[in-house]
Amino acid sequence: MTAHVTTPAAALASDLPGWATLVRAPNPGPMTLDGTNTWVLRQPGERYGVLVDPGPADAGHLDRLAAHGPYSMILVTHGHPDHVEAVPAAAERFQAPVRGLTVDHQVQEPDRLGDGTVLDVAGLTVTVLATPGHTADSACFLVAGPDGRQAVLTGDTILGRGTTVVAWPDGDLGDYLASLRRLAAYDEVTALPGHGPALTDCAAAARFYLAHRQARLDQVRQVVARGVTDPAAVVAEVYATVDRALWPAAEWSVRAQLAYLRASTDDTAGDRESTPGRTGLDRQ
């Protein structure tokens, strides 16, 4: 049985880059851990910073963010409310454009980013990494400072503690596995997550997540092979040791896993159908 993961997927970072400041929102909970991490990026000496994920609509949190301003840009990792609910208020208060992969963060005509877009802001170089899976619009940001220090802001694709959900139907497991494989290339690069503590090694965390996801998928595959296909029933078996308060979120991931298995089965059947020289009798 694959255990429920509540610990960090890599060693904790003992220090942050000098250009990264964490301002944690006061919204702790089972899904948000200690609260949503809002990141302020600014090379020392630069007037304007970059605000990443303004977080929930909380006046006190917005005041704390204002103390670290001014800002030339607001970046968002994905469109879940605990990350973007404060976007309209932050955009108005700081008079900063909002940028992300999605086309709607509750502001008019946000500036949509593309995979590989490079931004030179706040004395830093920020490269956009499209990492769909947790949600369709999930992005990570690879940030490099003039000192050579790098970090990846991972949003909810990699958390500082435990694992994340594939938020089906918007999220997709195949996309998520591909995104983790992409992040596994950033060896010994600090991960600055959307929730939980910073990690020393983005690649190590991504590889841990990949192994865990494959193990969970194997469990689901075994349960399905016994004829259990109802998502809630699969959750009850595969996530039996997990706090029931998390079962609704676990069902998102299970539905994503079931969709992934169905697609894999369909692909295999299609390959058999298209194999030259095979007949209907061969396939019986």
Rank of each mutant, 00 (worst) to 15 (best):
A130Q: 14
P132Y: 05
P132R: 03
G133Q: 03
T135Q: 08
T135G: 07
T135Y: 10
D137W: 02
S138P: 05
C140F: 06
C140Y: 04
C140D: 06
F141K: 03
L142A: 09
A144C: 07
P146F: 10
G148R: 08
G148Y: 10
G148E: 10
R149D: 12
R149Q: 14
R149V: 15
R149A: 12
Q150M: 14
A151D: 07
A151K: 00
A151E: 06
A151T: 12
V152D: 10
V152I: 15
V152K: 10
G155L: 01
G155N: 02
G155F: 03
D156H: 01
I158F: 02
L159M: 11
G162I: 03
G162K: 03
T164D: 04
V166D: 13
A167R: 14
A167D: 12
W168A: 11
P169D: 04
D170V: 12
D170R: 11
G171C: 07
D172L: 02
L173C: 08
Y176T: 01
L180Y: 01
R181Q: 14
R182I: 00
A184V: 06
A184K: 05
Y186M: 01
Y186L: 08
Y186T: 07
D187V: 07
E188D: 15
V189N: 07
L192M: 11
P193F: 03
H195G: 00
P197A: 07
P197Y: 03
P197K: 09
A198L: 12
D201Y: 05
C202R: 08
C202V: 10
C202M: 06
A204Q: 06
A204Y: 00
A204W: 01
A205L: 05
A206I: 09
R207F: 01
R207C: 07
R207A: 04
R207P: 04
F208T: 04
Y209F: 08
Y209T: 07
L210D: 08
A211N: 13
H212R: 15
R213A: 13
Q214L: 14
A215N: 03
R216E: 14
D218T: 14
V220F: 09
V220I: 12
V220P: 11
R221S: 11
Q222D: 15
Q222N: 15
V223Q: 01
V223G: 04
V224S: 06
V228C: 02
V228R: 05
T229E: 11
T229L: 09
A233Y: 02
V234K: 04
V235T: 00
V235G: 02
A236F: 08
A236P: 13
A236Q: 13
A236Y: 10
E237A: 10
E237S: 11
E237Y: 05
Y239G: 01
A240V: 15
V242K: 11
R244E: 13
R244S: 09
A245Q: 12
L246M: 13
L246N: 04
W247T: 01
W247V: 05
A249L: 12
A249M: 14
W252Y: 13
W252N: 10
S253P: 09
V254Q: 05
